[in-house]
């Protein structure tokens, strides 16, 4: 320590600018310290911090913007879903209505067809009946004439030509036929 003290004394003698105590500032260094801190402060305050703060603000805006965008997209999706559901319900209702209508139409068509068929059947039946009746009448007439002629032929062949007298013949035949009709064997054919 003595050496150190000697060295201290010697060096302070050599360079008088250095303060003897380390807790006292060296003037030149103090000035340098102040000047360069001012320079650094100016650069930081004018350039660095505004840049960083601007970027922070941008980042915050970007994050908030993203949140907003996401919310908007969600709302849109929700709306689209609602719309789709509504459309689906509409379509379903429409399909039901169409089906109902088709069923009704089908029923109506079936009923109409049935009616037509019945009418047709009735008409055919009536026609057939009428035709049968007519044919029966015709047959009856023909048969009566035929029977009359056959009977007359038969009778004339039996009794001879005396019986060809018109009036008598008609009366006889008619009378004979009426008898024929009244007999139960003829009526129950």
């Amino acid at each position: 320590m003595q050496h150190a003290a000697l060295a201290l004394a010697a060096s302070t003698a050599e360079v008088p600018g250095n303060p003897e105590l380390p807790v006292l500032p060296h003037t030149g260094e103090l000035i340098v310290g102040i000047i360069f801190f001012v320079i650094l402060y100016a650069i930081v305050a004018k350039k660095v911090v505004p840049r960083l703060e601007k970027m922070f603000a941008e980042r915050r805006a970007a994050i908030e913007g993203n949140v907003e965008k996401a919310e908007r997209a969600q709302a849109e999706a929700q709306a689209a879903l609602e719309q789709y559901r509504a459309q689906l319900a509409d379509a379903r209702g429409e399909a039901n209505a169409i089906r109902e209508e088709a069923r009704q139409q089908g029923a109506a068509i079936v009923a109409e067809m049935r009616q037509q068929a019945q009418a047709e059947a009735e008409r055919i039946t009536t026609n057939a009946r009428a035709q049968i009746e007519a044919e029966r009448q015709q047959t009856m007439v023909q048969l009566r004439q035929e029977v009359g002629r056959l009977a007359t032929d038969l009778a004339s062949r039996i009794v001879g030509e005396s019986l060809h007298d018109e009036v008598r013949r008609r009366g006889t035949v008619d009378r004979f036929l009426a008898d024929l009709e009244q007999t139960p064997t003829v009526t129950s054919r």
Partner: peptide, 13 residues
């Protein structure tokens, strides 16, 4: 040298 000497710490600073 002296009170206004440019010292090593000043240059480092």
């Amino acid at each position: 040298s002296g009170a206004f000497a440019i010292t090593r710490p000043a240059i480092v600073y």
